[in-house]
Design a binder for these strands. Structure first.
Lengths: 238, 238
DNA sequence: ACAGTTTTTGTCATACCGACTATATCTGTG
DNA sequence: CACAGATATAGTCGGTATGACAAAAACTGT
């Protein structure tokens, strides 16, 4: 067996392949019923002019979660939201300049009024995911695909989908989130029965939404409850 | 904004915090109805005499999956099994000697006849997970906890639990896997109806198991089908 | 007033689930 | 060889969840 075997016992600190480690954030939101992702345009080579996720080097005195939070805060002004790690990427040629391993996080926010513009970055904006698939810098296309796949699965069993909605939202708001994520149409009646039947998922308020343009009955407003796992799960149709 | 912001465009290669990157493998199996994990005893400091997962440095010319496969092969002789990445860990003090980020993989195998002994490592063995929780080197207790939590969730929706069984196995074999993973008792009759009702999950053979000591009707043998997602999922009781 | 829209409740047949019973088929023992 | 004990497998039954659909409620705009 090689000397790699006892790597944890007999080596000199400093005697190891040196990697750069970054934390990337796939920040998703819903705009006009379309799933959108926050991207930053690259100002220099490689991949100059292409778009990539916000992210950056992990510092020597912070952990991975902190690095992701900090980078998101620095580049978008957003803080206080849930970041969940979903995968790491380290192919040898994923960055032509050096060996980089990136730890990827998924974040979900409601449609942002304009905090986006408050940063100095004129080159940061949301893109509909269908409009950018296959065009991103580095291996970010693959990362985006994995993030979306992860999202489609996670919303079945966790209340994450509600993070796309404002603090108070209607059942129809939530239904449209699921429809966008899965790319399907859901029966409003059956969806309502299902989500309201899950304990501690949606807690009703005494308020209701002003009916949107084009009419329709106003809908009751709900807040996200304290549920952590949806039982039974919300499964997509066949 | 700091210069971290444009980390992908304007820096000198080599001008970044240097990390060691390792791939660890949490290899699980089932022995006598108990969930067991493969561990290696540490021969030197730090954590000398304690037990840790197999794993080692990622090389500069291989990707993360390859590193995990190679380390598993080198340290246990096992190859050709599914390795799925489930989380990465990089707290600043997780290794007292240097800054290490580890990418963790989960592997599941049937009870091994003895391939284990074929390696030179007299210090490698399987431990029941209940007997080692809270005693591992580094942050491997946390990693093991996350791996088990991941396992308990994944077996609900994927056929991964069948990887604990031999190539041909009975419904009762599979049921005992779920019972061990979840720590519950399942009704044999209802479990049978459920798993046989999932398309392409279990494909029957024309053979049956020799009835075990103590008697009992022999059970039909099945092979794992080509299903990738269990619909409906197999959910644990309340 | 009326058409159009959306929310919300209700109906109904079917599928699924947990608890339980019954039957099939083996081992081991006297 | 009869019979107890064990395990596998099939079936029953009531309660619950589900999908397709109908209907009523409550708004907007003309």
């Amino acid at each position: 067996m090689t000397d790699e075997k006892d790597f944890l016992s007999g080596y000199d600190p400093g005697d190891f392949p040196a990697f750069a480690v970054t934390a990337d954030v796939v920040l998703l939101t819903m705009r006009a019923g379309r799933l959108c992702v926050l991207l930053i345009e690259r100002g220099g080579p490689p991949f100059k002019g292409m778009w990539a996720f916000p992210g950056g080097f992990v510092k020597l005195d912070e952990n991975l979660d902190q690095a992701a939070s900090r980078e998101l805060q620095e580049e978008t002004g957003i803080s206080g939201i849930d970041l969940t790690q979903f995968a790491s990427y380290g192919d040898p040629d994923r960055d032509p300049r050096m060996r980089v391993v990136t730890v990827s996080y998924l974040a979900v926010v409601p449609d942002l009024p304009s905090p986006q513009a408050s940063t100095d970055a004129a080159k940061a904006r949301f893109w509909p995911v269908d409009d950018v698939e296959g065009t991103l810098a580095f291996d970010h296309d693959r990362i985006l695909g994995d993030a979306l796949s992860h999202l489609r699965t996670v919303v079945e069993y966790s209340p994450l989908a509600a993070s796309f909605c404002e603090r108070e939202f209607t059942v129809a708001d939530l239904r449209r989130v699921y429809e966008s994520i899965w790319g399907v149409d859901l029966d409003p009646s059956n969806f309502q029965r299902k989500v309201l039947g899950i304990d501690d998922f949606l807690v009703p308020t005494d308020r209701q939404s002003s009916s949107s343009a084009g009419g329709g009955r106003p809908a009751r407003l709900y807040r996200l409850g304290k549920v952590s796992e949806l039982r039974p799960p919300i499964l997509p149709p066949d």
